[in-house]
Structure formats: C-alpha cells, structure tokens
Design a protein around this nucleic acid. Structure first.
Lengths: 118, 118
DNA sequence: CCCTAATGTATCCGCAGTGATTATATCCAC
DNA sequence: GTGGATATAATCACTGCGGATACATTAGGG
C-alpha cells in the first residue's frame, strides 16, 4: 500500500496525523494540541475534526485505541485514537513533500537560504 | 494589508504564486512549470488554474502584465501574470508556515533532524 | 446543592476550492 | 490543410472545511 496515494494531505488531516505521531489522543484533545502547538495560528474546527477522523478511520490511517489515562484523571466520554503504520508513512510522505516545497520556495528566493546546511 | 489573512494558501494557490515568484508566466505555462518542477508529483488542473487566477486577480495577489516575449516566439493568445507585492508577501508567509510545519514534523520524529543546521 | 462553563462527541448544512469535461480558437509541423 | 499541441474559459459534480447546533458529562464556584 503506497502512502503517496493519499498526497497531498489536507491541512486538517496533516495536523491530526502530526498530533497523533507521538502518542494517543482523544478528539477534543487533538483540537487543543493543534491550537497550542501552533500558538493559535492553526485552528481545527470541531466539524472538521470529527468528520475527518471518521474518514481517516475508514481509510485506515488512524485506529481507535483502548488506551486509557489513569481512570481518576480520565473522562469516560473520550475516544482515543492512534496512528496506524500506514498513517505514519502517509504523514512522513507528506512531511517530505513539504520539505520539497520549502526547497522550491528557497530556490525562488522567497526564503533566505539556511545559514548552514550540512 | 496583512498577508497572513490569506493563510493557509491552498496547494493550487501556492504552486501558482511559487511559479510566478521569479518571473512572469502565462496560464498554460504555469501548469507546465508546476508539472516539471515537481517532476509530475504535483498537478494543476486547467479548471483549477483559470478559476484560481481569476480569484487571485480579484484579491490582488496577482496582476496581469503587458510583458511580451519576442513577438516572433510569442503567442498572441497568451495572457501573462506577475506577482503583486502583496502576493509575494503572502507567498513568503505561506513558505514560513511550511517551515514551521516541517519543524513540527521533525519534533515529532517523522523526519530525521537535518545533518547540520546553523 | 445548584448553576454555569468547559469538556467531549456528533451531525447538519452552506460554502469554497478542485479538477474533469467541454467548448472554442490558434499555432505549428508535416 | 490537417492534426495535435497550445491556450483560455465556463460549467458542473464532488469533496473538504468549519460554523452552528444538539446533547451529555464533568468541574468548579457560590
């Protein structure tokens, strides 16, 4: 299964996969992490979140998980999700695509060249 | 006028602005350059191209130009476009946003850290 | 306790962007 | 002069986005 067939990922999809890349999260928690990580520059609407997750589950990029926080701290309503292997490879492929885009932007002098690039 | 109000740019819009960043182009020529620069990985449909350019003109990110190639080599039908100052700043802002996304992807270990980064 | 706000999941629906298709015309090579 | 590539443009169905809404639960303050 070639992850490139999902490219380009939409901003919403990439933000969700990115958020799940280092651990499981529940829906609402994803929205808050995106908000925090981007310092408010990226926003994920609730309508987008749940419809997108539904699609990602159907496509097999994301899986539902039984993972639970310490019950004392957790909330029964939460549904946790994790990246599938395919989802991870799709996220990597998208990240590589973005690296190319940035390189193109540098080639077009929209960005300064990095000070040092090994 | 804050270019950030246009973010995030859609893939089609960014590809068009990127193409115009180092010189004037006509519509069909933009499609071909995108195809070539990405080595076929990015594709810009004709329907997308012309409707998007129309919108970009209305938003003032792109301007029509009187520029002409040597008449012997040029084609009367062509309409040339160039980046406006606002368009350039929007493209830069988008490129910077992509740099942040790539950094996020590195932080989440989706990509290896760059070998050297000054 | 109760009230409110925040948390949490979920659906609905209008809107915007995409891109295939179609139409039309011109350019160029043979 | 015929055919295929070039070129612009409008139409149209499809998808993704995100605000609005609904509803239930949880947390905290008075």
């Amino acid at each position: 299964m070639d992850p490139k067939r999902f490219l380009p990922l939409t901003p919403a999809v990439f933000q969700i996969l990115l958020t799940l890349a280092d651990g499981e999260r529940h829906g609402y928690g994803i929205v808050r992490e995106v908000e925090q990580r981007s310092e408010g520059r990226a926003h994920l609407g609730l309508g987008t979140l749940y419809s997108t997750i539904k699609r990602l589950l159907a496509e097999g990029l994301v899986e539902q998980s039984q993972w639970r926080l310490d019950p004392a701290l957790d909330d029964e309503r939460r549904r946790y999700y994790r990246l599938s292997e395919l989802g991870r490879r799709a996220a990597v492929a998208e990240a590589e695509r973005l690296v190319e885009l940035v390189a193109d932007a540098r080639a077009k002098k929209l960005l300064a060249a990095p000070e040092v690039q090994g």
